[in-house]
């Protein structure tokens, strides 16, 4: 079991299980079961099929990303993450308070960009 069980295979197994279940749903929908016929049934299948496809994309990413751990240094500029989070939050809050919040989101985004482009030199 240990030989063939890898990160990729775990995600693939999971994707395969979801594919089987989505295929069964397609069968029920195609058979015109009550409530399954028409756009509602097709939509339910489309959502599930899209999700199962996403799992295979994750498996592909896990398979492709076999890079080794590069040292133990702490990642630089963690403030970038906070600024980026603030920018995204402000953009969404514009939904409640008006578009000015989305314009203001440019400020933390710019700070995040500056932090990334001009890294602070540490001793």
């Amino acid at each position: 079991m240990e030989r063939w069980l890898s990160g990729t295979s775990v995600v693939l197994i999971w994707g395969a299980l979801n594919t089987i279940l989505a295929a069964v749903l397609a069968g029920f929908t195609a058979a015109g079961r009550v409530g399954g016929a028409g756009p509602a049934g097709a939509l339910a299948f489309a959502i599930y099929a899209a999700s199962a496809t996403l799992v295979f994309l994750i498996a592909l990413a896990v398979w492709a990303g076999r890079r080794r751990l590069r040292g133990l240094k702490q990642p630089p500029r963690p403030a970038t993450a906070v600024m980026l989070a603030l920018a995204v939050a402000m953009a969404w809050i514009a939904l409640a308070v008006g578009p000015w919040a989305a314009y203001m989101a440019a400020a933390p985004l710019l700070v995040a960009l500056v932090l990334e482009v001009y890294p602070r030199t540490s001793p």
Binding site: P75, P78, A81, L84, A85, L86, V88, A89, W92, A96
Partner: peptide
């Protein structure tokens, strides 16, 4: 840093 970004998005979401 992606995990830290996730934490802060969660905090800002809670505040919203």
């Amino acid at each position: 840093r992606a995990a830290l970004l996730g934490y802060w998005l969660y905090v800002f979401g809670s505040l919203a």
